[in-house]
């Protein structure tokens, strides 16, 4: 290293050439080091640990190597399968409800109105507040006797609902819808407002009704953005943890115990680090699948756009 510096520092020009060649690495090095240390290496460590019978009191080297046993055990564990099914149900129900409501509202409110910016500002609020606090607010509102909802039901003479008991999963999904529908609304609205005006004008001149415009022009044109949005939301829905932890702690029974929660319980309560690692790996695989499909979809979209452009150029 030292010799290199001296040999390159002979003339100012050589020195600056050396700096120019090294500078990309100097810019990228800190990020690479930190991401390697606290993301890549831990992920490798987790995969390695998932093949071991690993107890929190042991270091990973002391733990016995047991091959795929953790994965097989999990696959035969009804609790894990239940938790997997809860996670999938939670994610898909949340995202489909949010897509319908969010896109619907965006179509309805895609106009030039006073108050739109206020709505958008207020709409971001639920997403910015800590999930722990969101859980706290909803736990209060769902409270069987003190809570807002049951009081309201009582006031108008309807029977009370056992929100976080019998209907725990639904209640948790409602809270998530409250928090994340705005995300889809804002993205859908942005997509709507960047649609080519010409197509819409043409449809209007041809006498298309509002419904026809929505179904045959707006939705198909928005589709690429909508699919990416849905996939992004889906990935996030698999990460949800704090809201459910505060609302129900996974209960009653296993009815709201999503995978993320089960991982943390397996690691801390049951003290089965190997199994928790294997479970994390399953979760990671699901998320990887979603991420890859999102990239694949984007690539496909780019290729299609390029082809359309080429055809257009040939015509011209």
């Amino acid at each position: 290293m030292a010799t290199e510096v001296t040999s390159h520092a002979k003339t100012p020009r050589q020195a600056s050439a050396w700096i120019n060649r090294a500078s990309p690495y100097m810019f990228i090095a800190p990020a690479v080091v930190i991401m390697f240390m606290a993301l890549i290496y831990p992920l490798g460590y987790m995969i390695w640990g998932s093949f071991r019978d690993w107890d929190p009191s042991q270091t990973i080297g002391e733990a016995e190597f047991i091959g795929l046993k953790n994965y097989v055990t999990l696959w035969n564990d009804p609790n894990f399968l239940e938790s997997l099914s809860v996670t999938l149900r939670f994610a898909f129900l949340c995202v489909s409800a949010e897509m319908v409501i969010g896109v619907g509202l965006a179509l309805l409110l895609d106009r030039n109105i006073r108050g739109m910016s206020v709505l958008r500002t207020m709409f971001i609020l639920p997403m910015m507040i800590a999930p722990v606090v969101v859980g706290l607010m909803w736990r209060y509102m769902y409270h069987p006797t003190v809570g807002t909802f049951n009081r309201f039901l009582e006031d108008i003479g309807l029977p009370k609902v056992d929100w976080l008991g019998q209907n725990a999963l639904t209640s948790v999904i409602i809270a998530d819808i409250w928090q994340w529908t705005p995300f889809i609304f804002i993205l859908a609205l942005a997509a709507l407002q960047s649609l080519p005006r010409s197509a819409l004008e043409a449809a209007k001149i041809d006498g298309a009704t509002a419904w026809q415009q929505i179904w045959h022009i707006k939705i198909p044109l928005m589709m690429p953005v909508l699919i990416v949005t849905a996939l992004l939301r889906l990935i996030d829905a698999f990460k949800v943890l704090e809201v459910i932890l505060v609302l129900t702690e996974g209960g009653p029974g296993l009815s709201t115990e999503i995978l993320a929660l089960r991982i943390s319980r397996t690691a801390t309560e049951f003290r089965e680090l190997g199994e928790a690692a294997a479970m994390s790996n399953y979760l990671l695989m699901i998320l990887m699948l979603l991420t890859v499909s999102m990239f694949a979809f984007n690539k496909l979209q780019e290729i299609r756009a390029a082809r359309v452009r080429m055809i257009a150029e040939e015509d011209a």
Partner: peptide, 8 residues
């Protein structure tokens, strides 16, 4: 997700 990073 954070949950995956928890154990390692």
């Amino acid at each position: 997700p954070p949950a995956v990073l928890l154990v390692p």
